[in-house]
Amino acid sequence: MSILAHESNEELPAWSLPAAAGESIRLPEAWTEPVTREWAWGGTAGKGVRVCVLDSGIEHGHPLVGRVDRSVAIVREDGGIVVREDDAEGDLCGHGTACAGIIRMLAPECELVSVRVLGAGYTGSAKVMLRGLEWAIDQGFDVVNMSLSTTKRDYVDRLHELADMAYFKRTMLVASAHNMPVESFPWRFASVISVGSHEESDPFTFYSNPRPPVEFFARGLEIDVAWLGGGTLRSTGNSFATPHISGICALILGKHPELTPYQLKSVLHLTASNVRDE
């Protein structure tokens, strides 16, 4: 199915609600209990949740990553940008493998899919990233990890449209914030979850930030991340804080697959280390 509304088979959106139709859209009372970490993800390992890593690829067979369910690459070919199915090149630089390893550590049973958009040079990389995101949204992933951003103003409108499209299609985009005085995207959009770093060592410690645009802080300092060749490397950066939140999102959706992105963000807030003391 295409992500373009006019090409899809979906019913037209409901712009209004007729009288007495409230009953027809009654939703289950899902939050009758207090929202604790136990309620949010106790007893789940993320089974059935499909997580996409939009990055430099994922090394196959890495012990910290385990099974990679699918790998595609977005490549420039004959002047255009195409999706190459069944990409066998793995990871070109290590960044995607590092992110995938963190997600796997937190959500051991989630599905991992690699969409390679980095590694083919700087020129045109914003277009390649956009095409990769379009593909990921089209595939209906539950979570898309984006430890990357663009500063290109020309692409901001399209990126914003895609972020909103993902939000309404129940695909949660989790994006790295920037710790530099420069505007970059998509992390600044309200329809994604933006992640910065804290200095603590517990992977499940995360904070809800009362002063956005950075919405959550996760572990981002001196982490032993999966690295090319089956090894690890000690790394620091928001790039690695982001997959912590992606992994926790995968856990929550593993237990509560009905949650929409705004409900998921609310659960994250309610279970954050500075909100609920458990």
């Binding site: 430099s56 980095l118 040079g121 990389s125 951003s149 500063t151 790295s176 490397l233 000690r234 790394s235």
Partner: peptide, 24 residues
């Protein structure tokens, strides 16, 4: 432009720090 740690920083637009490169 997208190789090495410098290349990652460029294409992801993210600052990165790596600490035990000799292991690789």
């Amino acid at each position: 432009s997208s190789t090495g740690v410098a290349g990652w920083a460029l294409v992801t637009r993210q600052p990165l720090v790596v600490d035990d490169l000799t292991a690789d």
